[in-house]
Amino acid sequence: MTTVLIVDDQPLQRFGFRMLLDSNPDTSVVGEAGHGAEAVRQAAELRPDVVLMDIRMPGMDGIEATRRIIAAGSRSRVLVLTTFDLDEYAYGALRAGASGFLLKDAQPEELLAGIRAVAAGDAVVAPALTRRLLDTFIERGVTTTAEPDLRLAALTEREREVLQAVARGLTNGEIAELLVLSESTIKTHVSRVLAKIGARDRVHAVIIAYEAGLARPEPGQ
């Protein structure tokens, strides 16, 4: 059973999400919040597996709420819901520590699958969207350091190759084909990479790779 905290400033939106999640045998809504400050408080008290986070709310928005929930060392993982697939606010939430984002008009099965994935420790961003997010990341002029990044020091050469492929937005299957390895081997490598560089999930690993200068935008992107 995956426990969920719903955060949205629209009561009807929260009601719809609750109806969907309560009708699903694998999810349980443990609380609702109408703004970011309440979300932070309830996340600390209720310790849900997943926080379903709206971005645009009065007072404390979803980005700041996400940042505070993650900074507090919460076991909860944040899944952002947004109305635009490249909404700058959603991008900011990913940098604040969210494990991914979905569109508010996603199909019910997509939302449920996203919640399950986030609860299991995966990142919910499609590879194509990952590439577009990285375009935005570079366009914003995020500087990389010329100094060796200590987060990457423990990686083997193969693990660096895997991280570079992840940073390109490739799936495990695509990486396996690229490196001529089994998909299960790639999954193992990805897990080790995340552990070694201290990444929360795949999205966080991609950001680290770009910040460290290990990855660069490909020509034509």
Rank of each mutant, 00 (worst) to 15 (best):
M1R: 08
L5H: 02
V7G: 07
V7M: 07
R14N: 15
F17C: 04
N24Q: 15
N24W: 13
D26L: 15
D26Q: 15
T27N: 01
H35V: 10
A39K: 01
R41D: 03
R41A: 09
L46S: 02
D49Y: 08
M53H: 08
D54V: 00
M60S: 06
D61G: 01
R68P: 05
I69R: 02
I70L: 08
G73V: 07
T82V: 07
T83E: 13
D85A: 11
E88W: 06
A90W: 02
Y91A: 10
A96N: 13
G100R: 02
G100V: 00
F101E: 00
F101V: 00
L102P: 04
K104R: 12
D105T: 12
E109L: 15
A113H: 09
R116C: 13
V118C: 06
A119I: 13
A120E: 15
G121K: 04
V124L: 06
A126W: 07
R132I: 00
R132G: 00
L134Q: 06
D135H: 04
E139N: 14
G141V: 12
T143R: 01
P148L: 09
L152M: 04
L152D: 05
A153I: 03
A153M: 08
T156P: 08
E157C: 01
E159P: 14
R160K: 11
E161G: 11
L163E: 03
L163S: 01
Q164N: 08
A165F: 13
A167E: 14
A167P: 13
R168W: 12
N172W: 03
N172V: 11
V180N: 09
E183W: 05
S184C: 07
T185V: 06
I186D: 15
H189S: 11
V190C: 04
I197S: 04
A199Y: 05
D201G: 04
H204E: 11
A205N: 07
I208Y: 06
Y210E: 15
A212I: 04
L214Q: 14
P217G: 13
P219H: 08
